[in-house]
């Protein structure tokens, strides 16, 4: 798998390897005979979805420097639209087919189509939200994106066909460990390759100094919108998988609290650090689960998890506003001490 192979073949081989590993894991994990494996499996899958969300938001917030508080909105668009397609169009068709390999195959084909369509609609929403961002400064944009997320939610609440306030139930359980982690892996690769390219450099330039970026021939408008479109597409796909895994959607899930949760992941990891987003998403998925038992020691069984969560966020910002890894990646943080050759020479103060 070297440079001598054509690019498409090289990537295909890597993809095949990744798929094989995932299939192995999917079956292997189910086979582990621990009590409550289904519970752990569920948390793992939710973790995969959270990683996808964090990595995708990091493209918008961390790389392009556009502070978005509307990620839950994009996720909701993807979740609801894909669920709508599956529930009203794909599932009835699948039910008519005889059970067997062909049905199984079509189920996964339908899932991919539904989820991709969800992602595309979310990307369209991202495009529309990205447009006003051209004229707005950071904190205004935060409010606009937050408002956008709320508008989406209010609209969902008013559409009876997708459950309105009751929630959307009866979505088939097509999503699983394999699909969630395939998308998660792809999201990481996409984000990583982007930031290593001229597109990613343009994102970073916009983040660092818009006026200078513009003077260097970068169409800042275009790249901001691009970041929004890519980020919201991935969020929409994650939402679609979430819908097909939990089988039930409720508008309350997509309140801006969810957006904040994702923002907290990105900030904890360090704005702009992909591995930071991944690590933070893992921590913040498991932490609330770990804190679940704290509730039992509290008077009246009240749940202090979110209180701890918010105190952590404040303390983190006050003590380490750059997040765990700052703008660097995991290996740069740990590899720095060993590798001090001329190219990575210690910066002059």
């Amino acid at each position: 798998m070297t440079k001598s192979l054509p690019w498409w073949l090289r990537d295909l081989l890597w993809l095949a390897l990744f798929v094989a590993v995932l299939v192995g894991l999917a079956y292997g994990l189910d086979a582990i005979p621990i009590v409550g494996m289904a519970y752990y499996n569920r948390i793992l899958v939710l973790m995969g979805i959270n990683i996808t969300l964090a990595v995708s938001l990091n493209i918008i917030n961390g790389h392009a420097g556009q502070f978005s508080l509307g990620h839950a909105g994009f996720m909701a668009v993807g979740a609801y639209f894909s669920a709508y397609l599956t529930f009203y169009h794909f599932a009835p068709r699948l039910d008519k087919m005889p059970a067997g390999t062909e049905q199984w195959l079509m189920q996964n084909v339908f899932l991919v189509i539904a989820v991709l369509c969800g992602g595309l609609l979310a990307a369209l929403a991202g495009y529309l939200v990205g447009l006003p961002s051209l004229r707005l400064r950071g904190d205004y944009l935060a409010i606009v994106t937050l408002g956008f997320g709320e508008i989406i939610r209010v609209f969902i609440l008013n559409i009876d066909k997708i459950g309105a306030a009751r929630g959307f139930s009866g979505i088939p359980h097509w999503g699983n460990f394999f699909w969630v982690f395939l998308v998660c892996g792809l999201a990481i690769v996409i984000s990583w390759r982007l930031v290593q390219s001229s597109v990613g450099r343009a994102f970073l330039a916009v983040r660092e100094d818009q006026v200078a970026a513009e003077a260097m021939g970068i169409d800042t408008t275009r790249y901001k919108v691009k970041a929004f479109v890519i980020g919201s597409f991935l969020a929409g796909v994650a939402g679609g998988l979430y819908a097909h895994y939990t089988m039930y959607l409720n508008p309350q899930t997509f309140m801006f609290v969810k957006s904040f949760e994702v923002v907290a992941m990105v900030v904890l990891g360090g704005l702009g650090s992909i591995s930071g987003s991944v690590v933070a998403a893992v921590i913040l998925t498991f932490l609330p689960e770990g804190l679940r038992s704290v509730k039992d020691y509290m008077p009246g069984g009240r749940d202090p998890r979110m209180v701890i969560y918010s105190i952590m966020l404040i303390v983190l910002m006050l003590t380490r506003p750059q997040g765990l890894f700052g703008r660097r990646e995991l290996w740069q943080v740990f590899g720095r001490k060993k590798k001090r050759d001329q190219s990575e020479a210690p910066p002059v103060q």
């Binding site: 390759r193 390219s197 001229s198 597109v199 330039a205 970026a213 260097m216 890519i230």
Partner: peptide
């Protein structure tokens, strides 16, 4: 490199697929 942006541009798809 960013200074030379206009001369080394390519699509996001090309970046992702290398």
């Amino acid at each position: 490199k960013i200074g030379g942006h206009i001369h080394y541009k390519y699509s996001a798809a090309a970046a992702v697929l290398k």
